[in-house]
């Protein structure tokens, strides 16, 4: 009886599914984007304490990457700076970061977070509709299963970040707007 129950439950569930397309995990790709962004962004000197400080890549709140982000930056360096990963849970923790990823789960709080993050050279990266328009620097979008991104140039200037023309050319530029 037990075995029959097992087989029926699993068989029905399995059959209910259609074969998925072969594809990469969204967050593996987003992790690679985060690493790539660092190549095309210049931080103000004040963003680092010393010239050899690592570029601190942070995830706010729940980490959707699993190990993918840590693996993407492990052993890498850009302009003499290595990378470090940190998980942060609020604005104070985020203040030391150079790249701050705000996952979809945190989207409800990101407006108040952005307000409490004074301009201190943080490349904020979100994945929620309206993130860039609301003051985030870069926002990921999914377009037909492909990762795209928006850049809010004013927000980048506010953070004193210099974004290379190459990155801007690949992005959709958004203007800040106030939500009602």
């Amino acid at each position: 009886m037990a075995f029959r129950l097992v087989t029926v439950v699993f068989a029905v569930v399995l059959l209910a599914l259609s074969a998925p397309a072969q594809a990469l995990d969204e967050y593996q790709v987003k992790a690679a984007f985060l690493y790539n962004f660092a190549k095309f962004v210049e931080w103000p000197a004040a963003a680092f304490k010393t010239s050899t400080d690592p570029i601190l890549v942070c995830v706010l709140g729940r980490n959707p990457f699993g190990n993918a982000l840590e693996e993407a930056i492990r052993g890498k360096s850009i302009a003499g700076r290595s990378f470090a990963y940190r998980h942060v849970s609020d604005a104070a923790g985020a203040s030391a970061c150079q790249i701050l990823f705000v996952g979809g789960d945190e989207s409800k709080h990101f407006r108040s977070l952005l307000e409490s993050l004074k301009p201190m050279g943080i490349l904020t990266v979100g994945e929620t509709q309206g993130f860039a328009a609301d003051g985030g620097v870069i926002n990921f979008k999914l377009d037909d299963g492909r990762v795209r991104f928006e850049i809010n140039v004013e927000a980048a200037e506010h953070e004193q970040l210099h974004i290379s023309a190459k990155l801007l050319s690949l992005a959709q530029i958004v203007k800040p707007e106030k939500l009602p």
């Binding site: 594809a23 990469l24 969204e26 967050y27 299963g145 990762v147 795209r148």
Partner: peptide, 9 residues
């Protein structure tokens, strides 16, 4: 990267 097909989990 922009041309890669991804799955959303």
């Amino acid at each position: 990267l922009m041309n890669m097909q991804v799955t959303s989990v």
